[in-house]
Amino acid sequence: MSNVLVIVESDGSGPKAAALPGITAGQQLAAATGGQLHLLVLGASPDAAAQALASGGYGASAVHAIAGAELEPFTAEAWTDAVVAAVRELGVTAFGGTASSTLREVVPRAAAVLDAPIVTEITGVTGADAFTREISAGRAIATLKVSHAPFGFTARASDFAPAEPGSPATTVSALSAGSVSRRGATVVGVEKTQSARPALTEADVVVSGGRGMREGANFKVLEELTDLLGGALGASRAATDAGMVPADLQVGQTGKVVAPNLYFAVAISGAIQHLAGMKGSKTIVAINKDPEAPIFQVADYGLVAKWEDAVPQLVELVRAHKGG
């Protein structure tokens, strides 16, 4: 038996959209192992979501629901108890799901309790026990081989298409998790991100400035361009470390990973750790006075110029274009 268990986060009535890539990874893994795909829903009243999953099929042989007041709102502590119980009860070979902030907390904790290995943020399934993932800020792709069952996995959402309903329906079975505890933790609530500008990770356009901007006041002209384009403002680590702009604007491996349609790198040399945060962007524009700057190697369009000259011109040209 080499079945695969995917933990599916629900919105109360069905799977969260973010959970669907994890189901796809589970389907691929089950196909590779020759085992069945099982889905697991957790919550205070998970039945509606479990039923929706079972009706949709999603390539699964069975849907399991664990109900418990302690499981909602989410805590890694209580969810780990439930996941560990399910993995043991079902005797699955692999367990995991989408690399969401939820499962990135739960899967490693559950794996520790099960004394199991995990592969995190996988980008591909290449065998029953083999996976690819990026390491070292996307500069290398590692193939990992797992030699232990059970093992855990989390799948990077951008690398697996969302699973779709439409395969034969299956049934829901209730599982008991035994004792489930939050270990004294309480969740006060979630404050959803709010800003006049879109979130860095969700913006269609990102305009980032680097060390060459010299001081925070100089970011004003970048903000002008950002707002004209309805985008988000970013910065390189050199700029945030120098205190020009707040640290949460940092784009890079140590900051935010962004993949907008259009990315402007202004006065950014292009350190590896910055590239790791933006090289997935569709169109990259680099403006730098140094023609040798590494940023030009990843840019679709490069302009060798001082930002003091180029950016105000850009603002005027974009404004004219938008205006008419």
């Binding site: 290398a140 797992v146 990259i284 302009l303 974009v318």
Partner: peptide, 29 residues
């Protein structure tokens, strides 16, 4: 229990182009 079976370099991004002015840049965008 997890072994690295291999490491490879990712595919390179296709080479871009250098433009001569802000005007050309905006036109191309």
């Amino acid at each position: 229990h997890v072994a690295v079976a291999g490491v490879t370099a990712p595919e390179k991004r296709a080479a871009g182009q250098i433009v001569d002015s802000a005007q050309t840049l905006v036109n191309k965008l």
